[in-house]
């Protein structure tokens, strides 16, 4: 019982950053109606920029975090300009395939610049775990959870309380109608893309700081986690993305404890499969589903 609760605590902490990854993913999907496979690799580029800033200049965590976020956002805009802006409306497959090509390109670029496989990443917070009766909570996990939930709340505020958020939700609801009410869709889309990649950057920084290392494979890892959490939570939903991430984190922590690390990923894929088969709209109903059905 103690193990079960401890695993759940650990899972929720890690899952909060999965939730952030899914949040960035779902915003891009909602606004563009297209899957951006280069999402994780954009985050990875940010991570590499962070590690360079750390290793070369001995920067502190906040500076490294800023570098990761800026790097991810710039890489995100690069992907948008290359894979999404030039593609005609409806050419979703072309965008997805080209975002796959850019994934490979970004991964190779990272390997060329930093040829050693693994690089150090600064820790988030050090210090003894907090003891709560039989349970222990890592300080860096706590920082991760706090940052992730805070950022998710901020994203929700921007979406529902600002003019930019209104524009985003209008595009998500119906792109043609968004044009018709005067939303400058061509201006908003790259901004949304950069913002979503920056959210991924925050998630990437938190995960890397907990792992204290980065490899070129981090891009694929981030895309996979974000994608699975997004599908579990429900495409296009902010609370869904966070919930999906938390659930994925808990499932992984439990299966790792009881079955070992090899089985852990298998269980995650099985849960994704189960959701796709039984409840394809995910935990929380989708923002975009109703409108895509009507269109």
């Amino acid at each position: 019982m103690v193990d079960l609760v401890q695993n759940t605590i650990d899972g929720l902490m890690i899952g909060s950053s999965y939730g952030l990854l899914a949040l960035g993913f779902t915003l891009i999907f909602g606004v563009m109606r297209r899957l951006n496979l280069s999402y994780g690799p954009s985050v990875m580029i940010g991570g590499y920029l962070g590690t360079v800033v750390y290793l070369q200049f001995g920067a502190g965590p906040l500076t490294v975090a800023a570098a990761v976020v800026v790097g991810a956002a710039v890489a995100g805009i690069y992907v948008e300009r290359l894979c999404f802006a030039p593609m005609k409306a409806g050419a979703a497959i072309a965008s997805m395939v080209s975002s796959f090509a850019i994934w490979m390109q970004l991964e190779q670029a990272a390997i060329l610049v930093l040829p050693r496989h693994t690089y150090a990443f600064p820790p988030l917070a050090t210090g003894a775990p907090i003891e709560l009766g039989p349970f222990a909570i890592r300080v860096d996990h706590l920082v991760m959870l706090g940052s992730a939930l805070g950022l998710a709340a901020a994203v929700q505020l921007v979406l529902y309380r600002t003019r930019f958020g209104l524009a985003l939700r209008a595009i998500i609801g119906n792109p043609v109608a968004a044009h018709l009410v005067g939303v400058d869709v061509r201006m908003v889309m790259p901004l949304a893309f950069a913002g979503a990649s920056a959210i991924g950057g925050v998630a990437g920084f938190l995960v890397l700081a907990v792992d204290q290392q980065i490899t070129p494979m981090f891009g694929m890892w981030a895309t996979l986690k974000g994608l699975i959490a997004m599908m579990i939570g429900g495409l296009g939903s902010v609370p869904g993305a966070v919930l999906g991430g938390l659930l994925l984190g808990v499932i992984e922590a439990q299966s790792q404890w009881y079955f070992g690390p090899q089985i852990r990923d298998l269980v995650a894929y099985f849960v994704l499969f189960a959701f796709l088969a039984i409840r394809p709209r995910g935990l929380v109903g989708s923002m975009s589903e109703a409108s895509t059905q009507k269109a």
């Binding site: 609801g173 119906n174 109608a177 018709l180």
Partner: peptide
């Protein structure tokens, strides 16, 4: 301003 065919309201707003 255009009121489009099929109305195209924002369904989730």
């Amino acid at each position: 301003a255009l009121v489009p065919e099929n109305r195209l309201v924002f369904p989730e707003m």
